[in-house]
C-alpha cells in the first residue's frame, strides 16, 4: 500500500496533499520509506528543484529502491539516515542555520512527517511553509494520555501501551506538538473486558 485515502476525520487530524514545488529561497525535503517515491515524483515534475534541495531520506525496509534514483537527481545535499533518531541532530542543525523563505517537503509515514513538522515548528517555521504527502504504512504514533509514553507504529485498535501496559483505544484526536494521536484506556469502566483488537481502517 503506497497511497492511501484516509477517511474523513475530525479537524485536529492532519490532511495530506501531493507535494508541489513552492517558491522559496531553500528547499528542505525529509522522507522515509515509500515517501521516497513522493520525492521522486516531485523531482520528475521539476528537475531544477533538486539542485537547490537538501534531502534527508530514511529508507527503512525499502533498501535502495528509492535512494538510488533519488541520488541520480543529484540533490544539492543528499543524506541517507539509518533511522529518524539518527537523523534528528542533522535536521536540527539544518533548521538552526536556515533563513526565512525555506520551504519544507515531507513524505512518508505519519510518524515521520509529524515529528519533522514538530521540530520545524519549534524552529519557527509556520505550518504554511510545510507540505506533507502520505506514502506507505498507515501505522500511527500514539501518546498514552495516562503515562505520556509514545508507542510507535500502532496498527491495531485497541493496543497495549508500550510503556505502562494499559489497553488503549485509538482516537483521531491529534497533537501536532507531540506528533501523535491520543490513546485512552479502553476498559476503565469494565476492567475485565478488553475488546478484540482490529486492524486500523478496517
Amino acid at each position: 500500500m503506497s497511497k492511501f485515502q484516509f477517511p474523513k476525520a475530525i479537524f485536529s487530524r492532519p490532511v495530506y496533499t501531493v507535494l508541489e514545488r513552492r517558491v522559496g529561497s531553500h528547499h528542505l525535503m525529509v522522507a522515509d520509506a515509500e515517501g521516497g517515491g513522493a520525492l521522486l515524483d516531485l523531482a520528475k515534475s521539476d528537475s531544477g528543484l533538486m539542485a537547490d534541495a537538501h534531502v534527508i531520506y530514511i529508507p527503512k525496509h525499502t533498501g535502495d529502491t528509492y535512494s538510488k534514483p533519488l541520488a541520480a537527481f543529484a540533490p544539492g545535499q543528499f543524506y541517507i539516515g539509518s533511522s529518524y533518531e539518527a537523523s534528528v541532530a542533522r535536521l536540527r542543525r539544518t533548521l538552526l542555520g536556515a533563513h526565512m523563505g525555506l520551504q519544507v517537503y515531507l513524505a512518508g509515514t505519519e510518524g515521520l512527517m509529524g515529528q519533522v513538522q514538530s521540530e520545524a515548528a519549534q524552529a519557527g517555521i509556520s505550518p504554511e511553509s510545510i507540505q506533507s504527502e502520505h506514502r506507505g504504512s498507515v501505522a500511527r504514533r500514539m501518546q498514552c494520555v495516562h503515562c505520556k509514553g509514545i508507542t510507535e507504529d500502532v496498527t491495531v485498535d485497541p493496543f497495549v501501551c508500550g510503556h505502562c501496559g494499559l489497553n488503549l483505544y485509538v482516537r483521531d484526536h491529534y497533537s501536532r506538538r507531540l506528533a501523535a494521536f491520543q490513546g485512552v484506556c479502553v476498559n476503565a469502566e469494565d476492567p475485565g473486558n478488553v475488546p478484540k483488537a482490529k486492524e486500523l481502517y478496517t
Binding site: 479537524f11 485536529s12 484526536h173 506538538r177
Partner: peptide
C-alpha cells in the same frame, strides 16, 4: 480533556472531538 495533549492547538483543533463540531 488533556492540556498536555491539546496545548498549542487552535480553536478548531481543540474542539475537534465535540460531536458534529466540523
Amino acid at each position: 480533556w488533556s492540556l498536555d495533549f491539546d496545548i498549542g492547538m487552535n480553536f478548531f483543533e481543540w474542539h475537534a472531538p465535540v460531536p458534529k463540531a466540523n
